[in-house]
Amino acid sequence: MRQCEATTHVPPAGLLVAILAGQGRVLGSELAYTPPRVRCELGHGHDGEHADHVWDWDHKPTHALWAHWTTAQPLRFESLPWCEAIGGVDQDACTLYWDHVAPHAWDLHDPVTEALRRLVITEHDQKPD
């Protein structure tokens, strides 16, 4: 299934407050890894809010900070446990949060990555031998 393509801007101050509320401190250098925009990681056409992982907790590896939003509601942050499902061809762990809407991460395909893959294959097939 194709991954959702919804995106939104991340307010840096709001993300910093969410991180500080969750772990109490953050180094300035770590903030270089925070995203300026988020892109929904759920399946295309899903119900409910969009969601994207934005931060791994230092003190709680079983949880992560997620951004949630809709077109009608502003971005909000929530600490959620990781999905515990294992599956797919390679028996990978799902990289979404617990109790997310179906499908699991291993069944989702990023349309941008897929387009680049097709472009590389096309260019490779067009090269003279």
Rank of each mutant, 00 (worst) to 15 (best):
Y97M: 04
H53V: 00
Q23W: 10
C40N: 05
T95I: 07
V54R: 05
R76E: 10
P35R: 09
P36Q: 07
Q91R: 14
H46K: 04
T95A: 11
A72L: 13
D92A: 11
G87L: 05
I86H: 11
E84N: 11
T62C: 06
G88R: 00
L31W: 15
D56G: 07
H109K: 14
W55T: 00
E41G: 09
R25F: 10
S79T: 08
Q23T: 04
S29W: 14
L108Q: 04
T70P: 08
K60V: 08
R37F: 12
T113C: 10
W69P: 03
A115Q: 13
P61N: 03
E49C: 07
H46L: 03
A32W: 10
H50V: 00
W106Y: 10
Y97W: 12
W98M: 09
R25H: 12
R76Y: 09
P103C: 05
G24I: 03
E30L: 10
C94T: 02
G22T: 10
D47I: 05
V101K: 12
E41F: 06
G24Q: 09
D52M: 08
H44R: 14
G24S: 07
G24R: 07
P81T: 03
W106K: 01
A85I: 05
G88Q: 02
W57L: 15
G87H: 07
V54Y: 10
I86V: 15
A67T: 01
L31G: 02
P36K: 06
D110R: 04
P36F: 05
T34H: 12
Y33K: 14
L65F: 03
L31C: 14
T95E: 14
W69H: 04
Q73K: 12
H100V: 02
C40W: 09
A51M: 11
A102H: 10
A93G: 08
H44G: 05
L65A: 07
V54K: 07
P61K: 03
H100F: 07
H63K: 09
H63F: 08
P81D: 09
S79F: 01
A105S: 15
W82P: 02
P35G: 00
A21I: 01
E78W: 01
H104P: 04
P103V: 01
A32I: 07
W66C: 00
L31T: 15
W98I: 01
E78V: 07
L65E: 02
E78P: 01
A32F: 09
V112K: 12
G48S: 06
A85M: 13
T95Y: 04
L42K: 15
D52L: 00
A105P: 03
L80E: 03
D56L: 11
P74Y: 07
A67C: 08
V54Q: 09
C83Q: 06
L80P: 03
G28E: 15
H109F: 14
P103Y: 08
R76I: 08
V101M: 11
A105T: 12
G28A: 11
D110S: 05
L27P: 03
Q91K: 12
G28S: 10
G43I: 00
